[in-house]
C-alpha cells in the first residue's frame, strides 16, 4: 500500500480507516454530510464532531495534516460567517449600523455554519487522505454500476479516470524534462511580469501536448493488442470486499444519521 501512490494527498499508513471498502467510505461521507445539514442543534452537531474525532483517531492521520486541509478553506469560512452574522435578521439585536446588524440569532446561525463547513471539509479530506486514487476510482465505478442501465458508459469512464491518474507522474516527469531542456536553451521561467511568464509556458505546453498525444496513440495500440474490446464480456480480477470493519463503519454512519433525524423530529427548539 505504501508504494501505490506517488502523488496526491494520500497519507500512506495502515489503519482501520485505510482498510475500509472505498465504496463504504464514499457512502459514509454522503451520509455524514447529510447528517451535518440535518442537525438543527448543538447536540446533533456535537454528535457529528464526536464521530469525526473517532474517525481521525482511527485513521492514524496526524491532526496537523488534517488541519492543513482546513487552512486551505479558512478564508472562505470566515468570509461566509461574517456575511451571515451581519445580514441575519433576528430579534435580540446587539449592534446595528446602517444595513448591518449583529443579532443573537445571527451569531448562532453563523456558528452553526462554521461548524458545519469545518466538519464537511475535514471529513471530505479524510477520504482522500485514507484512500488511494486507484481505490477511489474502483469505488466510484462500483457505485455507479447501476447507471449502466441508463446506458452510462461506467466502465469506460472509470478506465479513463484511472489511466489519467496513472499518467500524472509520467507527464510530470516529462514537464520537468522539457523545462530543463528549455532552460538549457536559455529560457527564463522565473522573472518578468505575468504576461511574460505565461508566454514562457507555451514552449513547455506544446511539446507536452504533442507527447501526450503520442503516448495516447501508443497506449491505444497496446490496449488493442491486448484484446481490449470495451466493457463487453469483460471480467474484473479485483473484487471489492465488504468486511467486518465495513460493518462497524456502516453501523456508526447509520446510527449517526438516525440519531440526528430523531433529534430533529423530537427536539423542535434549538438548544
Amino acid at each position: 500500500m505504501l508504494k501505490d501512490v506517488a502523488f496526491g494527498q494520500f497519507y500512506p499508513v495502515d489503519s482501520f480507516v485505510h482498510r475500509l471498502d472505498p465504496r463504504l467510505k464514499i457512502l459514509f461521507l454522503i451520509a455524514y454530510i447529510t447528517a451535518i445539514f440535518l442537525a438543527k442543534n448543538f447536540v446533533g452537531l456535537g454528535a457529528c464532531l464526536f464521530v469525526l474525532v473517532l474517525i481521525i483517531i482511527a485513521s492514524h492521520v496526524p491532526a496537523r495534516k488534517v488541519l492543513r486541509s482546513v487552512r486551505a478553506v479558512a478564508f472562505l469560512i470566515v468570509f461566509t460567517a461574517l456575511l451571515n452574522t451581519l445580514f441575519y435578521h433576528g430579534e435580540t439585536v446587539y449592534w446595528t449600523w446602517g444595513i448591518f446588524s449583529v443579532t443573537k440569532e445571527g451569531l448562532i446561525f453563523s456558528a452553526f455554519l462554521v461548524i458545519r463547513l469545518l466538519l464537511l471539509v475535514t471529513c471530505s479530506s479524510l477520504l482522500t487522505y485514507t484512500t488511494t486514487p486507484v481505490a477511489l476510482t474502483d469505488g466510484i465505478e462500483s457505485l455507479l454500476t447501476p447507471l449502466k442501465w441508463i446506458r452510462l458508459p461506467v466502465h469506460e469512464l472509470a478506465l479513463i479516470m484511472s489511466i489519467a491518474l496513472r499518467f500524472i507522474p509520467i507527464l510530470m516527469d516529462e514537464t520537468e524534462r522539457i523545462m530543463n531542456a528549455q532552460k538549457a536553451r536559455g529560457a527564463d521561467f522565473e522573472t518578468g511580469g505575468l504576461i511574460k511568464r505565461v508566454r514562457a509556458i507555451i514552449p513547455i505546453l506544446i511539446p507536452l501536448l504533442l507527447s501526450a498525444f503520442r503516448r495516447a496513440d501508443d497506449l491505444g495500440d497496446a490496449m488493442d493488442a491486448r484484446c481490449y474490446m470495451g466493457s463487453k464480456n469483460r471480467t474484473k480480477y479485483k473484487k471489492l470486499k465488504f468486511g467486518w470493519r465495513d460493518l462497524i463503519a456502516f453501523l456508526l454512519g447509520a446510527a449517526l444519521v438516525t440519531g440526528v433525524v430523531l433529534m430533529r423530529i423530537y427536539l423542535v427548539r434549538a438548544i
Binding site: 484511472s162 497506449l219 490496449m223 491486448r226 484484446c227 464480456n233 471480467t235 480480477y237 479485483k238
Partner: peptide, 20 residues
C-alpha cells in the same frame, strides 16, 4: 506507454480481463 494500470498485478491482469 503500454502500461494501463497503476499497480503491476492489475496491469498484468488487463489482457486476461479483456477476454473475459
Amino acid at each position: 506507454n503500454q502500461t494501463v494500470a497503476a499497480i503491476v498485478e492489475d496491469d498484468v491482469a488487463f489482457g486476461a480481463e479483456n477476454i473475459g
